[in-house]
Design a protein around this nucleic acid. Structure first.
Length: 259
DNA sequence: CCCTATGTTCCCAA
DNA sequence: CTTGGGAACATAGG
């Protein structure tokens, strides 16, 4: 469920609460996460985001890397009793309890960042460069949508925000990545920076179950132009939003203004 | 029963 | 060997 804006939201909220604090107790509830990692007794030095991964840096020089995948959530409770439903691990601090909740159990914990290889763009909020995208996309036969979602090229963009970015950039999602001109990549850069930053301000997109660290819904669902709007009129041109499948993912676009 | 779901990884064919 | 597409993972909801 979480893409860059959602993870960035959790990162900022968590940083304010746990940096400088000691982990009093760390409990793995879902053993699928691996029983080896334990940060009990360590002090949190920093909380950072890399792509869609959240990193909790501790005073022994290590970092706990959490990837929430599809349905992972983090919940902070100052006062607490029973575990929340679908809790997968908990970390107890002097001022509250942090729980990872994940019904589908796809979330992963590790010590190392798991990006496949060196990414071209590590943080699209800051580093997004149209020239890089143009260069890297030369000779690629995949669609521009698959390209934007491929974490090896750009880390952090997922299905919802790709659809929104391509709509704002006026690009058909099935265009081959190699067919885009530099000028078209500039449109992608502008759209991505605006949308991702706005989505962070909005604390993410709550379509179904996304909640921030305190259980609050995001606000970016009110800004969506195409995602989950199949058969509805395009806000820009009044064409009808189409829904197709690309690599098995629901893809929404306006066939009238996205060429 | 069917399909869908904000992600990644593995397998296989071209 | 490389690239890209689909299945698998596990669960809930419509």
């Amino acid at each position: 469920m979480p893409e860059l804006p959602e993870v960035e939201t959790l990162c900022g909220q968590l940083k304010k609460i746990i940096v400088g604090e000691i982990v009093l107790e760390f409990r793995i509830i879902d053993h699928k996460l691996g029983g080896i990692i334990n940060i009990a007794g360590k002090r949190v030095l920093d909380v950072t985001r890399q792509g869609k991964a959240l990193k909790i840096h501790t005073d022994d020089g290590e970092a706990l890397v959490l990837h929430l995948r599809m349905t992972g959530r983090l919940l902070w409770e100052p006062d607490f009793e029973d575990l929340p439903p679908h809790a997968r691990f908990t970390a107890l601090f002097v001022n509250g309890r942090l729980s990872c909740i994940d019904p589908r159990r796809f979330a992963t914990l590790s010590k190392e960042i798991l990006l496949p290889s060196r990414t071209s763009i590590e943080n699209p909020l800051l580093d997004f460069r149209a020239e890089q995208l143009f260069a890297v996309s030369r000779g690629k036969k995949l669609t521009v949508k698959s390209f934007l979602m491929d974490q090896r090229f750009i880390a952090g963009i997922g299905n919802i925000y790709t659809c929104e970015i391509l709509h704002e950039a006026l690009l058909h999602p099935e265009r081959k990545a190699s067919s885009l001109s530099l000028q078209e990549w500039v449109r992608v850069e502008k759209a991505a920076k605006r949308i991702l930053n706005k989505a962070v301000e909005c604390r993410g997109t709550t379509i179904s179950d996304w909640r921030d660290l305190f259980g609050q819904k995001g606000e970016y669902q009110n800004e969506l132009r195409v995602y989950a709007r199949g058969n509805l009129p395009c806000f820009s041109c009044r064409g009808i939003i189409q829904r197709i499948s690309i690599n098995g993912r629901g893809t929404y676009f306006c066939s009238s203004c996205q060429a």
